[in-house]
Computed example of a mutant assay.
Amino acid sequence: MGLKKKLGTSIAAAVLGVSLIGGGTFAYFSSAETSNNTLAAGTLDVVLDKPVIIEIDNLKPGDWMDRTFKLENIGSLDMSKVLLLTDYTQSGVKGDEDIGKHIQVNFLKNFDKETGFNDNVIYHETLYNLKNASPDTVQGYSSKIFKTEDGLAAGEINNLYVQFEFVDNEEDQNAFQDATLQLKWTFDAKQTEGESK
């Protein structure tokens, strides 16, 4: 067979192979099933029943003010704990004094949770120390205040009681006449641990 004839036969076989690959069909059984799935995240949402817990004038050493407020979990997820973060600014203080060292906060028994304390005061600390507390200290006193070993379940409300006291140290406190303290409390809710669903 001549070279031209061999070459022609090879080309023809190649074209036939390509046509079988490109245009050929194969019969087989098949079955398909579609799964439509949803993964939706829950919400963690803590709210206060009032935007201002305390606002008062004409304080003097020895005065105290009792206040109540409600803390509610309006989210869909349970909270493992609520941390109380404290910050404040002061104005009108004479010298380098800090009025936060003289304002003590007495956290009173949370009657929605069993505290185990006979005394009505669960925890007390100055605003200065609350503001400057380490994260571990914040977590420690927050668990005492809110009694959140059982957390704050979705839909649950806690009634909280607090007393602000301008401590009379029986010394000269004239540096605080006409002083003002602006207090900011942030209630920082944390989720519970992850679990099998």
Rank of each mutant, 00 (worst) to 15 (best):
D119P: 04
Y88E: 00
I103V: 15
N174G: 15
E156N: 05
G62F: 05
T89D: 12
L181W: 02
G155Y: 08
Y88H: 07
Q182H: 12
H102Y: 15
L127G: 00
E72L: 09
T148Q: 01
P51W: 04
K113M: 12
V105W: 05
V167E: 12
K131S: 01
E193N: 11
G62A: 08
P51K: 08
L183S: 01
E125I: 06
V167N: 03
G75N: 07
K101N: 10
G151F: 02
D87P: 04
K101T: 14
S80H: 04
P51E: 10
G100V: 03
D78G: 09
I157S: 12
G92T: 10
F164D: 10
N132P: 05
G140T: 05
F107I: 06
F187L: 07
D168I: 12
Q104L: 13
G75S: 06
L130Y: 04
K197N: 14
T89P: 01
E114D: 15
I53Q: 05
I53V: 11
A189V: 11
K60D: 06
E97W: 10
A189T: 02
W64N: 14
A153H: 15
F117C: 04
I54V: 13
D98V: 08
F176V: 08
V138Y: 02
L183C: 00
L130W: 04
F166T: 12
D63Q: 09
G194P: 07
E55Y: 06
Q90P: 03
G140P: 01
E171N: 09
V93C: 04
K113V: 15
I122G: 04
I74G: 01
D87E: 04
T126G: 03
V167A: 14
V162T: 13
S91R: 15
K70E: 14
D172T: 11
V105A: 11
E149C: 06
V167C: 09
S196D: 13
V52K: 03
E125W: 04
G194N: 08
M79H: 01
D150S: 14
Q177L: 10
L77H: 05
I53H: 06
E55Q: 13
K109Y: 03
L59P: 08
A154M: 07
V52M: 03
R67N: 10
F107P: 05
G92F: 01
K147M: 15
N129F: 10
V82M: 02
E156Q: 15
T148F: 09
V93E: 00
F146L: 14
H102K: 11
N118A: 11
G155L: 05
D96N: 15
E165V: 08
D119A: 13
G155H: 06
D119K: 11
E149R: 08
V82W: 00
N120L: 10
E195I: 09
E72C: 04
D136T: 06
N73K: 03
F69N: 05
M79K: 00
D188A: 09
V121A: 12
N120Y: 08
P51I: 06
N132S: 11
A179N: 10
D57V: 10
Q182G: 06
G92V: 01
I145G: 02
E55N: 14
T186L: 09
I99Q: 03
E170K: 15
K50Y: 05
E195Y: 01
E195D: 07
K113L: 10
N110T: 13
H102N: 11
V138K: 01
D172W: 09
K50E: 08
P51Y: 04
Q173P: 03
F69A: 01
S196L: 14
Y123T: 02
H124C: 13
